[in-house]
Design a protein around this nucleic acid. Structure first.
Lengths: 210, 210
DNA sequence: AATTTCAGTGTACAAGTGTAAGCTATTTTA
DNA sequence: TAAAATAGCTTACACTTGTACACTGAAATT
């Protein structure tokens, strides 16, 4: 049971996935990619596509998973850098901007499908982003000893701001990206500062009550 | 020169625009709308479309302008409500959520085309959003006597947060929307508070120097 | 009143789409 | 070793798409 067949199958499956990823660009979204084009780019006959995915939708969801994986790698990378010291916010933004530069098309996929026409796609992307948010939430809760709800609100706002900046970065040149990064860092500081302030106020209210 | 002809032409132009708007939905984006479908919905022969728009792109850009108009109406409405007293943040979020409920498809258009495949569309949407942001920026600068850069950062962050909440609201039921609104209000308070704090700090640094 | 302009029509075509059906060669199973 | 399973192929079909072309009748211009 060496599985020489299953092995080959997995190989061409990857071929299809990579073909699709390669066709994605600023001018080309997944939804205006046709089954035939993907098959051709993979060096396959159109109908062979069905041996691996029942649908373009199924391929698309696979790509979103793939993108989520890349996103989690990004987080790991950021965490490693942070452990070596430095401003958490600055390093996070820097790392994210690097990610955009290297994985623009994957990020575009997430951005586009998040507001796309398929409920399944939207749900899949939101799931990936919520993993991202919850990890940050845990970190904030632990590092800053924040109330759970406040930590969530901060994490959610921060992710929103960073993703939006990432979206803007896609159409920006390196000069503009620099400015964008600076501004994003400032905005994240607003949020962090505001969250701390309001968390303390609640704390004080509580102790006054006792 | 009564223009009975020009009048009729304008009429069917509106017919086309409305037909397109009517076909937009959660499951149907502008980009997967065909010229023929729009023509059919307008009660026109496919080729008659060209008498009014050279392209589906041209129609699309018109729709984005239309959406921008609606957005500015929204701002006016919010301003009126605010003048009658109440929390600025709360009223703004409330008004925006109402907008989403009544103009979901127009908002979807903006969301989708902002990350779409056409540079012209992306630019058009960003232009509309930047009007929105700059108006808020002016308001903040005047009402809170903030530094111009800080006011811009706050306005930009606020708009990002609100749009993102709007995007989530599109897939939410009324119960979830309530929660979403509350959270958004909190997040906007974080940002406002943080912006004030950091603005003051800069102010203090300046007076220490003198 | 004669001429020009033009919004809207119908027909036609080439190109692209998803996918059904059946075949082949090779691996896997019995 | 014989039989079954299956990844990939070719052919075929019914649709949809954008748009070129020629035409018509009514409005606008002269």
């Amino acid at each position: 049971m060496s599985g020489i067949r299953a092995q080959q199958k997995e190989k061409t499956r990857r071929l299809i996935i990579n073909a699709a990823l390669n066709q994605l660009s600023a001018e080309r979204s997944f939804s205006n990619l046709s089954l035939r084009e993907v098959a051709k780019e993979s060096g396959l006959a159109p109908t062979s596509f069905y041996r691996h995915f029942s649908d373009m939708d199924e391929l698309g969801l696979t790509l979103v998973d793939e993108a989520g994986l890349t996103l989690r790698q990004l987080m790991r990378q950021a965490r490693q850098r942070i452990e070596k010291g430095g401003s958490v916010i600055q390093i996070s933004v820097l790392t994210f901007m690097e990610f955009i530069e290297n994985n623009g098309n994957i990020f575009r996929l997430l951005l586009r499908e998040r507001s796309g026409t398929s409920p399944a796609f939207r749900a899949a992307v939101n799931r990936e982003i919520s993993y991202f948010t919850l990890e940050l939430c845990d970190y904030l809760q632990q590092a800053n000893r924040l109330d759970a709800e406040i930590a969530y609100l901060q994490a959610n706002a921060a992710v929103t701001i960073v993703f939006s900046a990432g979206s803007d970065a896609l159409d920006a040149d390196s000069k503009e990206r620099e400015l964008l990064s600076e501004r994003t860092i400032h905005q994240l500081r607003f949020i962090a500062r505001g969250a701390m302030e309001l968390a303390n106020r609640i704390e004080n209210t509580k102790s006054e009550q006792t």
